[in-house]
Computed example of a mutant assay.
Amino acid sequence: MTRDIIINGKFLRAPMTGVHRVAFEISNALADLAEQQAPELGGRRFEVWHSHDGRGRADTIRLPTRDVGPLENILWEQMTLPARQGQPVLLNLCNIGPMASANALTMVHDAQVLLSPKSYSLGFRLWYMSVQRVLARRNRALLTVSEFSRQQIAKTGLAPLDRIHAIHNGVDHVLRVKPDEAVLARLSLKGTNYALALSTVQEHKNIGVLLKAFARAELSGMKLVLFGSAGRETFAAEGHAIPPNVIFAGHVTDGELRTLMQHACALLFPSTTEGFGLPPLEAMLLGTPAICAPCGALPEVCGEAALYADPHDAAAWAAVLSSLARDTDRRASFGTLGRTRAAQFTWRNAARRLLDILDLVEPSRPHSR
């Protein structure tokens, strides 16, 4: 018997973020399983529903898609989607979903709005916390992206542990991206020793510790390349002192980012909390060592294949990075360790884990395996 499952396609209307990446990649991994008629599907048929403003990217999804009207944005998700859902299970992969839908599962990626409230506006926090409380009470189950997030979500009282299920992200999407080497010339990085990090002023991302590290003498001969939306003026407005060896790359394409990762001495990730942490694994899969804070899900995800530094100690970051830069054998060793570790995280495995969870929470369906 075929059982339809609807995937909430609101991610098709927005620029790609880490959260949207998960929805996109799991959807296409399910499409691959469907094309191969994998027995794990157990007769399920997935379809991505989206609003009118998402149809421009609908062809990037290999599952069947459906343009469902009327309305757009939050109103579409909270009103149109549950009104049109009918009997199928609804799968929300981007933190929130329609509060009116009980026959649903929602992936809550992390508990960051509670763990790091200063990283978000008051309105955003209140909206997410209100919606997620309703979903936790009404949905069949919650999903998340790591055991760390599962434990943290349970500690907030959102839902008990036995109703929260972890699905590790994949990272193999980075291998499909064609490198764009022109970015090295554009940023004057050819022949330059540099480290790479995300450019954001969100408190929990903790980029300030890197700015302090690169102001130290031991890193004076290395550059810090920050990619992302926050520019020099944004950091200065937040009171950060910016050393001269920091380069703000701005928004980069996937191809440019792959090139920047491949040529970097290391990917730096000093987050004080993290639900999963895709960038370190992406870099590791490309053979670039990752230096992380030993916080959140980062030790769970990166294991002993990454290096670690105290998130509050700029001197520690400078010491670990400068030592790595001097030791080519150590860089090569961590490059190999990283590739091996990151190769375990595939979107096919994530899709299969999702199917296992659906077997558990759909009581009317016999287990397919």
Results as ranks from 00 to 15, higher is better:
Lys10Glu: 09
Phe11Leu: 10
Pro15Phe: 10
Met16Cys: 04
His20Pro: 03
Ala29Leu: 08
Leu41Thr: 01
Arg44Cys: 00
Ser51Lys: 05
Asp67Pro: 09
Arg84Gln: 10
Arg84Trp: 08
Gln87Tyr: 09
Pro88Leu: 14
Leu93Arg: 02
Cys94Pro: 00
Ser101Ile: 03
Asn103Leu: 06
Ala104Cys: 01
His109Phe: 14
Ala111Gly: 04
Ala111Met: 02
Leu114Lys: 13
Pro117Asn: 09
Trp127Glu: 07
Ser146Arg: 14
Ser149Pro: 00
Arg150Ala: 07
Ala154Ile: 12
Lys155Gly: 04
Gly157Tyr: 15
Ile167His: 08
His173Ala: 04
Leu175Gly: 05
Arg176Tyr: 03
Asp180Thr: 13
Leu184Ser: 02
Leu187Ala: 00
Leu196Val: 01
Val201Asp: 06
Gln202Phe: 10
Glu203Val: 09
His204Asn: 08
Lys205Met: 11
Leu211Glu: 00
Arg216Ser: 04
Arg216Ile: 01
Glu218Phe: 07
Gly221His: 06
His240Asp: 01
His240Asn: 00
Ala241Glu: 11
Pro244Trp: 15
Ile247Tyr: 03
Gly250Phe: 12
Val252Ala: 03
Gly255Arg: 10
Leu260Pro: 00
Met261Leu: 14
His263Met: 06
Pro270His: 13
Ser271Tyr: 14
Glu274Cys: 13
Gly277Ala: 06
Pro311Gly: 07
Pro311Asn: 09
Ala314Asp: 08
Ala314Lys: 07
Trp317Leu: 04
Val320Asn: 02
Ser322Asn: 02
Ser322His: 10
Gly335Val: 12
Thr336Trp: 14
Arg341Leu: 02
Ala342Ile: 07
Arg353Phe: 05
Leu355Lys: 10
Leu358Thr: 06
Arg365Ala: 03
